[in-house]
Design a binder for these strands. Structure first.
Lengths: 348, 348
DNA sequence: GAGGTCATTGTGAGCGCTAACAATTCATGG
DNA sequence: CCATGAATTGTTAGCGCTCACAATGACCTC
């Protein structure tokens, strides 16, 4: 920088230095074709020399486009939401959009409403809501909002465009795997009642058992945390010897708690009881024993969500089906078979 | 909404409906004191009726303030960065700022530079960089940037204002705990060489041993992943019976891998070998056995970082010391003592 | 009742950019 | 050699808001 300035340089300053009009500078910056090479070079040199950066607010005002998207999420320190968030940001950036995030501790209607207001004040053109709680989605549908909203993980049957992993299928993979391994019945530790994904997993588990002609036992319920899994595991341990040989746990963290409870109760996994989780968090492979689980493709979720949102923003007809469902994948490890595959050898 | 409009309503539209000037509307929105109650009510009614929302770009252009902060981070699906990110966003929102995030897969100089450009295009007033790799911070210091930058987790001795958890102290707590428990020597599985936090933890471990008059053994090195911990654990298992009775592992995920490797080698924890981790991820309490570890207060990190950044942006003298160091806390569990505290009873 | 103060409201001028159109230059061919 | 049109550049008018200041009117003081 040649000299410090109080105000950052404007397009007009650059134009003056380059001996052109400000509009020509704008054209160079906008990659407009009709600019002579020599002129373009002169302008670029002036921009470089002054350290000029286009003022985004002025640009947004003139174009009526902020090129910013919003994301509302909760539980962002958990693997699933964090992965989704990451995938969303990456996909948005690839399209030239900036992402502003609001992370909530609890997904109440008020919090959600405040979050949307905050994002709206920030001028976002659209929002992706990672809102897996039914109440939240219903609230979302009611709220008056000046931009399109796409929901993630809300399941089907909602009035809002949404992108989902097929939880029902995931639960069928998990439950079917246990039945195929010879277990007569599969118990279930479900997630919180209000979560659509929890409900879908439970439904998939139930359907698989019923199709096999098995009466589903009463599912236990946790709150996704390892602690709630631990408590449920203590209860499950009481059923060993009375027909319990296999459990489908609605997420990996709770499965971790279940494994600990079983171990403490002297129940061996998988010899006495087989356990399947859901999510495939990075730790699962190193649990005691390594956990069979269901992997979700968050990267695809992110890409599809952003694509859908941009379609809505630009007024295009959505390119995919209105309700996107992404296939999950079963990852088999030692918690369901009496052998331990080598770490690092997990299928991708 | 009474009727759909092609263009969203402007301040002038609201003013017309309320029978005042646009400036009065602006005053109502800005909570300016000198507005008659009756007038304010009339304006608010008009705003409500038209569903008016202030245009953030125009406001930003006129005030020269976007009220947006940027965050650059990598490894955002890991517990530490995700927690920091969450804390940053929450703290910024409390101050009325929006946060735009760029999550990088790898923290190379190019990626970092692109990320800052992207945020700059988005008009951020300042950036927090979660950049724990030394090379990244050095690059950051070099880059020409039109806004202040605060680093997190870069350790001291950097030319950039930064906020850190005192890693050295954390390592001393961990190592000292093992020595106090009667272990003669403490082995160490370090994090990646380029990470300042890894280096600080190693230094703290080394210093503690040397002060106790113990020759530090050669540390092993991992990459934070459970898999690298597993491989290191296999090597460590070979030293059992040759003086190895305690290991300080630089993070919880690697500790998980170590625990599995020891278990598979028939080594009991903590009876044969005691293990301490670092981070206190939510799963640690449910490892086999529950892991003694060092907890970092990410919430404070977030608050201090935002406070520091805002000081810089507003040209204030930073209110705290220029280099903020936050105290970590030892959490003792079963992996270092032959008893298992009840889950849920962990100190906060 | 002239002059002063205060609270309240209005007016005009930008903020820095892009879009639309106008103006200029340049090459080309009849 | 000038008409014709394409390529290139400049001019003007906003985008919707806030800031500084001007104007208005109510109320007080002497």
């Amino acid at each position: 920088m040649t000299h410090a300035q109080l105000r950052p340089p404007t397009m007009a300053d650059v134009a003056r230095l380059a001996g052109v009009s400000h509009q020509t500078v704008s054209r160079v910056l906008g990659d407009h074709p009709n600019v002579r090479d020599e002129t373009r070079a002169r302008v670029l040199r002036a921009i470089e020399e002054m350290g000029y950066r286009r003022n985004s607010s002025a640009r947004a005002l003139a174009t009526r486009r902020t090129r910013t998207l919003g994301v509302v999420a909760s539980g962002t320190t958990l693997y699933g939401p964090a992965s989704t968030l990451f995938a969303l940001e990456e996909a948005a950036r690839a399209e030239g959009y900036l992402v502003s995030t609001v992370s909530l501790r609890k997904l109440t209607v008020e919090q959600l409403s405040e979050a949307l207001d905050h994002l709206s004040e920030g001028g976002v053109e659209g929002v992706v809501a990672i809102a897996p709680q039914r109440s939240a989605v219903e609230a979302l549908a009611e709220l008056r909002r000046p931009f399109p909203v796409v929901a993630v993980g809300t399941g089907s049957g909602v009035e809002i465009p949404s992108v989902n992993v097929d939880q029902h299928l995931g639960a069928r993979l998990a439950t079917g795997h246990l039945l195929a391994a010879g277990h007569r019945k599969v118990w279930h530790l479900a997630g919180p009642e209000d979560w659509q994904e929890a409900a879908d997993r439970t439904a998939g588990w139930r359907a698989t058992l019923e199709e096999a002609g098995v009466e589903p036992p009463m599912p236990l319920r946790g709150d996704w945390s390892p602690l709630s899994g631990y408590r449920a595991g203590q209860e499950l341990a009481g059923w060993v010897g009375r027909g319990l040989t296999a459990v489908f746990v609605a997420n990996d963290q709770m499965a971790l708690g279940v494994l600990r409870a079983l171990r403490e109760a002297g129940v061996r996994t998988p010899q006495d009881v087989a356990v399947v989780g859901f999510d495939d968090i990075p730790e699962s492979e190193f649990f005691a024993p390594p956990l069979t689980t269901v992997r979700q493709d968050f990267s695809t979720v992110g890409k599809r969500s952003i694509a859908l949102l941009l379609d809505l923003i630009e007024g295009r007809v959505p390119s995919g089906s209105p309700l996107v469902a992404i296939e999950p994948q079963l990852v088999v490890r030692a918690s369901t078979f009496p052998y331990a595959p080598q770490p690092g050898g997990t299928p991708d």
